[in-house]
């Protein structure tokens, strides 16, 4: 079972929900739970738990290496590259590795076999067990600074899933490639939103995305009590279930800011788990 916690808008409480839902599911079902923090540009789920037995694994993607001796400067690699990562000027290729998606198109196009496939490091996957609850393990990706290729690293984090546990995915915000990569293979998606104009605007886009992916989903409204009731109206009109509502609470905010998970007890996920 793979449940993704996503949102359109950032800062709605995806990590808050992902971590507290994981703790609640483990307590109720007594089954092992795996948290996969796929927000590789800004992973933060690990801040709320203490990890031990941590392990690190370098994540790489395919890239290219050019052999200047063999290259005749024909420019076929540049023409073949749909990611515009290669320019050939004065018969010399200029390769921008950060633009390369590792598709190998240039390797196929090169008549001189001057291009070979190499592995390029893009980030790290960090894994560990939650110290005070060894039935929960957590894995997160950390994208190298300046790196733009988030989806392959997300794939490396997703590969940490194991068959006997319930998986909770903390998705990146937004609805672009990284979010789609994180949620596309999920059995269920929970969209976290807040009852504000921004929350509603981005929720609509997220709903559209998850419907295109044809994954069943529902909504959790966080910080209930602020804003207005337009998110409720939207969900009613679109026939979207609201799993639970987390009230705006100073106590939760204070505990959150200290990196403590005690706020998990303030939330009622009984219905969500069922």
């Amino acid at each position: 079972m793979r449940i993704a916690i996503a949102s359109g808008k950032g800062g709605t409480g995806k990590t808050t929900v992902a971590v507290s839902l994981s703790l609640a599911i483990q307590e109720l079902t007594k089954k092992p739970v795996t948290i996969l923090d796929c927000d590789v540009e800004e992973p933060n789920a690990h801040i709320f738990v203490t990890l031990h037995k941590t392990q690190q694994m370098k994540a790489t993607i395919q890239s290219c290496s050019f052999d200047a001796e063999k290259c005749i400067g024909c420019g076929k690699c540049s023409e073949a590259c749909r990611f515009n990562a290669i320019a050939v000027v004065k018969k010399n290729p200029i390769f921008f590795s950060d633009m390369c998606h590792g598709c190998r198109g240039c390797i196929l196009a090169c008549p001189e076999d001057a291009i070979t496939s190499i592995q390029r490091e893009i980030g790290t996957v960090i894994s560990g067990d939650v110290q005070d609850n060894p039935s929960i393990d957590l894995h997160y990706g950390l994208l190298n600074v300046g790196e733009i290729m988030a989806p392959p690293l997300i794939e490396s984090v997703l590969a940490k899933e194991h068959t006997n546990s319930i998986t909770i995915i903390d998705s990146p915000p937004g609805t672009s490639c990284p979010m789609v990569q994180a949620v596309r293979t999920s059995d269920y998606v929970i969209l976290v939103t807040e009852p504000t104009a921004f929350g509603l605007h981005d929720l609509k886009i997220a709903v559209e995305t998850v419907r295109l992916l044809q994954i069943p989903f529902s909504v959790i409204i966080n910080r209930e009590g602020i804003g207005d009731d337009r998110v409720h109206q939207f969900c009613q009109k679109e026939n979207i279930e609201i799993l639970t509502e987390i009230p705006q609470s100073r106590k939760v905010a204070v505990l959150y800011s200290k990196g403590q998970t005690a706020w998990a007890k303030e939330m009622d996920f009984t219905r969500a788990i069922q």
């Binding site: 990611f83 515009n84 990562a85 290669i86 320019a87 050939v88 000027v89 004065k90 200029i94 633009m99």
Partner: peptide, 15 residues
């Protein structure tokens, strides 16, 4: 309408 690398390709065209 290039998804990325417009500057690289424009520069190559100019060359």
């Amino acid at each position: 309408s290039a998804p990325q690398g417009a500057g690289i390709q424009s520069a190559q065209n100019i060359t």
